[in-house]
Design a binder for these strands. Sequence first.
DNA 1: CAATATCAGATTGACATATATCAATTACCC
DNA 2: GGGTAATTGATATATGTCAATCTGATATTG
Lengths: 244, 244
Amino acid sequence: MHASTTINNCDSCDGCKYNCCLNTSNCGATNIFNGLTPVELHSIMENKRQIKFRAGETITKQNTPLTHLICIKSGMAKVVAEGPKGKNLIIDIIKDNNIFTGGGTVIDDSHHFTVAALTDIECCFIETSKIFTFLGINSSFAIDLMKLYNSQHIKMHNTLINLIHKYMPGRVADTLLYLKNEIYDSNPYQFILTKQELADMSGMTKESFIRNLKDFEDSGIINHSRNSIHILKEEDLIEISRNG
Amino acid sequence: MHASTTINNCDSCDGCKYNCCLNTSNCGATNIFNGLTPVELHSIMENKRQIKFRAGETITKQNTPLTHLICIKSGMAKVVAEGPKGKNLIIDIIKDNNIFTGGGTVIDDSHHFTVAALTDIECCFIETSKIFTFLGINSSFAIDLMKLYNSQHIKMHNTLINLIHKYMPGRVADTLLYLKNEIYDSNPYQFILTKQELADMSGMTKESFIRNLKDFEDSGIINHSRNSIHILKEEDLIEISRNG
DNA sequence: CAATATCAGATTGACATATATCAATTACCC
DNA sequence: GGGTAATTGATATATGTCAATCTGATATTG
C-alpha cells in the first residue's frame, strides 16, 4: 500500500515491539499509549508494522485514505501541503519520537498532507481502526488522544497564521528560529534541508529566501553557508519575527 | 467578565434551558450533548449563561483565557485572527446553532481568535471545566467532542491553506462561493458584511477585493451591488477557485 | 413632507512596494 | 569533470497604499 523498503515485524521481542511507540511524544502532550492497559496496548501493537524509508521517499500522500497513525522511531520527515501548480508548503518537520496523525483522523479518514522522508527513516504504522476500538472503552486514552490533536492543531494553526500575516523577513526569521529551537537545538546548526525546502517552509521562492538571508547576513544578524546557519543577534531576529 | 448586555438564566423552564444547545451542530459533526445522560446534561447546563450581544460587540478576545464554550442560539458572528499592525483575517463565520470552541481548549486554555458579533446575538456560555469533568466518565461524549474538534480543525485548516496557496481571484471566488453555499444558501444573496469584511475573509485589502469583484462583473460571472451578490456563472467561479 | 446636510462605506485611479519569474553564472560535492 | 544546488541580476507581476471622488442611507431642517 505504501512505498516501503522493509517490513520488519520484530515479533520475537515485546520490548522492541512497544518501546519506540511508548517513547514518542509531541508538542508537550502526554504519550497517548501511556493510558492503555497492558492488554489494550498489546492489542493495538500486535500487528503494527515497522517500516523503513529512504531519504526522499513519500511516506503518505495527500488525499489518500488515512488508515494508520505513524510513530517516527528515527530520522526526519517533512509535512507538505501540496497546492495546485506544483506549489509546496512545508508546514512541519517531524523527527525521532514524534507521532504523526492526519488531524482529521476521526472525521474524514483522509490525509491532508504529504509526508516525505528527509533522511532515512524508521517508523511504525499503527491501524487507526485499532485505536478507535479503545476510544469508547478507555476514556483516559481518549483524553490523551484529544490532547495530542489539540496540540498539533494549535501548532499548525499558529504556523499558518504566521505565514499569512507576515512579510518575507518575518517568515524567514521564523524559519531560522524554528530550526534552531525546535529541530537542531544548537547554534550554529548544520541542516540537511535544501534552500528550496527552507523556502517552502517560509512560503516563498528559493530566490526570495536567499535574498532575505543575504540581507540578514549584511546586517550582521546571521552567518550562513551552504548547509549551516549561525544566528549572531538572536534578539534582532526575534524582533523581526515579532514585527512580521 | 465579558461585555454582556443581558444575563438571562431562564431557570423556570428546562426546555428553554437545554434546547438551544441541544440543537447545535457543526460541520456535520454530531451534537456533542447527545451522548450525555440526563443527569450529566443537567449538571453541565444548570449554570450556563444565556447572553445577548449587540452587533459589533466583542464576544471573546484573542489571547484571553478560554473558560467557556459558546453555543450560538441566534445571530451571526465573525471569527478573526488579529495580526500585528492591525491586519485582521476573518477565518470563519458562525451562525445560529453553531458551537464554537477555541480549538486549543484541552491544551492551553487560551483563545486563539477574537469572535465579534455581526448581528445582534443570543448565545450560551458553558464552562469548559464542567465539560472536562465528563470527558473521563462518558467516553461517547469524549468521542463526539473529539469529532467536533476534528471537523473544526479540518475546516479551518483548509481555509488557511487556500489563503496561502491561491492568488486573489481564487480567494475572492472562494469567499463568494462560501457565502452562497455555507452562509446564505441562496443565489442571489443579500449580505450584511461590509466589503472590508469580505476582503478580510479573502486575505486582501478592500480595494483589491473590489477590483476583483469588478473583473468578475466585467466577465459576466457575477452581478453585484452594495449589499448583494448574484452568481451568474457558478461553474466559472468554481474553476477560478480550483485553479487558485 | 420635501429638500438638504451629513457621514460612512464603496469605488476609482495613480503610484509604491512585495514578491515571483527567468536567465545567467557560480560554487560545491561525488 | 559533470551535475545539482546556490547565488545573482534584470525584469515582470501581484498586491498594497494613498488620495480623491462617489454613492446611498440616515438625520436634520424648514
